[in-house]
Amino acid sequence: MNLGDLCNLVGGTAVCGTARLGDSVEYAFASDLMSDVLTIKSTDFILITGLANIQSIRTLEMSDASYMLLCRGKEVTPEMLELAEENGIVIITSPYSLFRCAGILYSAGLKPLY
C-alpha cells in the first residue's frame, strides 16, 4: 500500500518524511508495547501506535523500520521529530483510534505480520 493512500484512508497528516509518501508498505503491526515491536524480525512494516514519545522512534530506529502511524490525535514532540528526521522515518498522524486505523487499513489490504 502506498503511504500517501494510507494517509488519506485514516484522515491522516504526514508530519515527517513527506518526501517518502510514495513508498509502499505491505505489512503493519499495531502496539503500544515497544518490547513487542522489538521482537519483529522483519523490517517491512508500519508501526500503528498511540505511544507518542521518543522511545517509539528509537524502537523503529533499532528495528530498521521506517514508518509510523500515530493514532488518537497524539502530538509529535520536537524530540520525536528530530530523531525521526535524522533516521529518515515517516510519521503520519491520525485523529482516529488505533482500533479504527487498524480496521480501515486491514480492510484496505494491509497485511498483518502474524
Partner: peptide
C-alpha cells in the same frame, strides 16, 4: 508509560 515493562526484555536479549 514509556512503552516498556512487558516482560519481554531479557527473553528478547537472549533470543
Amino acid at each position: 508509560e514509556m512503552g516498556f515493562g512487558a516482560g519481554m526484555g531479557l527473553p528478547n536479549i537472549s533470543e
